[in-house]
Design a protein around this nucleic acid. Structure first.
Length: 308
RNA sequence: CGCGGGGUAGAGCAGUUGGUAGCUCGUCGGGCUCAUAACCCGGAGGUCGUUGGUUCAAGUCCAUCCCCCGCAA
């Protein structure tokens, strides 16, 4: 089949790779190169880099729903469009171009967690199960008919980054089966149950701010759900203290205030939350690099300080 | 040239107004202990990122280059 692949970050790569190796005629549509890093070097999205290495044509538009993008899509004349973490809203006109419509690979069990950051929010909210849903893209935000759905457990200490990686692989597999079913004319379409639908917002930096009046489990979930981006943090006076990795403990609380830090280079570092002590395993101070709590405490003392 | 912080023993940090380096952890040896990520004693380990300069003398001042990190995007 002739497939227009619309996707941008790493999450889309396994799906793109699967389509490529399945022998489909591809064109990649993705976001423009963006300035990245300290020196704002213009960097191509991962899907573009992948495509260029294999001679797959690449098109980049700020907004594919504008005339230029529509014209480029029409010129390619795909049988099918596939989106995976594309990062742009498609117009009805875009969607009308391929005869089989557009299939989206989404990182949640729809209709739960519609929106931009389903994987992170599932972890932050303490879900124990998530998955991949392939669906027919329509003009709404992840509202189209469900095609196939694969579930997977969220591991107790799994980070968003780790789950991202697993789901991106699972996504490729779900997509593969979806397309096979489509080609054989045996693809079920199930409308989403609006009553069950939930939306999650795009993740912002502030979503990484920890609240130590929450339970150790809630704080832990936020730490892993915002790892590696945007990263969890607390304030130590004026300074930001990033918390990269934590561990639940059964250390007994007494009457300590929330956010109290105790520990040393030998015992490890613990922060008081609502119902107990959360061990901080990896952290990063302003201007510093990412360190294990023990290495950090070998040079600086945090005993008795309050993290807010 | 977007703003800013930093490169000192294996790791993390101190090093005042310039006079050949300290702390914590780790490590090695010994001791104590039912035991330990505990405790005690002792030891090893550093051309102080690069190159050049100022000086009687530079980790400590000046210049240059390399690398790392935070913010902002």
């Amino acid at each position: 089949m002739k497939i227009a692949f619309l996707g941008t970050p790493e999450f889309a790569l396994p799906s793109l790779n699967m389509l490529y190796e399945s022998g489909h005629a591809l064109a990649v549509f993705t976001q423009p190169d963006r300035p990245v890093g300290r020196h704002a070097a213009l960097t191509p999205p991962p899907t573009k880099a992948y495509a260029l290495e294999r001679g797959i044509p690449v098109y980049q538009f700020e907004k594919i729903r504008l005339p230029e993008g529509v014209a480029a899509l029409r010129a390619f004349a795909p049988d099918l469009m596939v989106t995976a973490a594309f990062g742009q809203i498609l117009s009805a006109e875009n969607l009308s171009i391929p005869k089989y419509g557009c299939i989206n690979v989404h990182g949640s069990l729809l209709p739960k967690y519609r929106g931009a950051a389903p994987i992170q929010w599932a972890i932050i909210n303490g879900e124990t199960e998530t998955g991949i849903t392939t669906m027919m893209t329509d003009v709404g935000m992840d509202t189209g008919d469900i095609l196939l759905l694969d579930k997977t457990a969220i591991l107790p200490d799994e980070t968003a980054g780790e789950l991202f990686e697993r789901l991106s692989v699972l996504g490729a597999e779900t997509l593969r089966r979806t397309i096979i079913a489509l080609e054989s004319g045996d693809l079920p379409r199930t409308p989403q149950d609006e009553a069950q639908a939930t939306k999650c917002p795009m993740l912002k930096k502030e979503h990484g701010k920890l609240d130590f009046s929450e339970s150790i489990r809630q704080v832990h979930n936020r730490v892993r759900g915002t790892n590696p981006w945007p990263g969890a943090y607390g304030m130590l006076g004026e300074d930001v203290l990033k918390i990269h990795k934590t561990r639940l403990t059964d250390r007994q609380p007494a009457h300590e205030p929330a956010g109290l830090l105790i520990g040393n280079a030998k015992s490890g570092l613990f922060v008081r939350c609502a119902d107990g002590w959360l061990e901080i395993l990896e952290l990063q101070a302003t201007g510093g690099k990412r360190l294990s709590a023990r290495d950090y405490l070998a040079g600086k003392d945090l005993e008795g300080k309050i993290l807010i």
